[in-house]
C-alpha cells in the first residue's frame, strides 16, 4: 500500500493504492491527518485501491471529521463498488462527499 500526496490546483490529492487493511490503515490515517494540516481541501483518490477494510474506512471517517472541524473539504474520489457497498451497509455513503473522479472533485471545488 502506498499514499502519494500531491498538490493539484487548490487541493491536496492523497492517492492511495493497493490494499488498505489493518496493517497499513494507521499509515493512511497519519498521512490524511498530516495532509489536512495546511488547511487546503483534500481529495482522497481511491481509484488504485484494490481492497479497503473497516480500519481503512475508519481512517477516512476520522480524517473527514477532522476536516469538518477545521472547516476544510475532504472528498473521496473513485470509490470502488466493493468499498461503496461496505460504506452503504454502515450508511457512510450518506456522510462522505463522494465524487466519481478526482477531476470531478476538483471541478466541485472550483465552483
Amino acid at each position: 500500500m502506498t499514499v502519494d500526496i500531491a498538490a493539484r490546483g487548490p487541493a491536496t490529492v492523497a492517492a492511495l493504492s493497493g490494499e488498505v487493511d489493518l496493517e497499513c490503515s494507521p499509515a493512511v490515517r497519519r498521512a490524511l491527518l498530516d495532509a489536512l494540516r495546511d488547511g487546503r481541501p483534500v481529495i482522497v483518490d481511491l481509484s488504485l485501491v484494490s481492497y479497503i477494510d473497516s480500519s481503512g474506512i475508519a481512517s477516512l471517517v476520522e480524517a473527514y471529521q477532522a476536516a469538518r472541524k477545521q472547516g476544510t473539504a475532504l472528498m473521496l474520489a473513485a470509490v470502488s463498488p466493493a468499498a461503496l457497498r461496505v460504506m452503504q451497509l454502515a450508511r457512510l455513503d450518506r456522510v462522505f462527499n463522494i465524487r466519481p473522479t478526482v477531476d470531478d472533485a476538483l471541478a466541485v471545488l472550483a465552483q
Binding site: 490503515s25 494507521p26 490515517r29 480500519s55 475508519a58 481512517s59 471517517v61 476520522e62 457512510l92
Partner: peptide, 19 residues
Amino acid sequence: HTDLDRRTMEIMARMKMEV
C-alpha cells in the same frame, strides 16, 4: 488482535453497531 489507535477502534466498532 491489533495495535490500532483507540479512536480507530471506536469508529470501527461504532460502524458495526450502526450495521
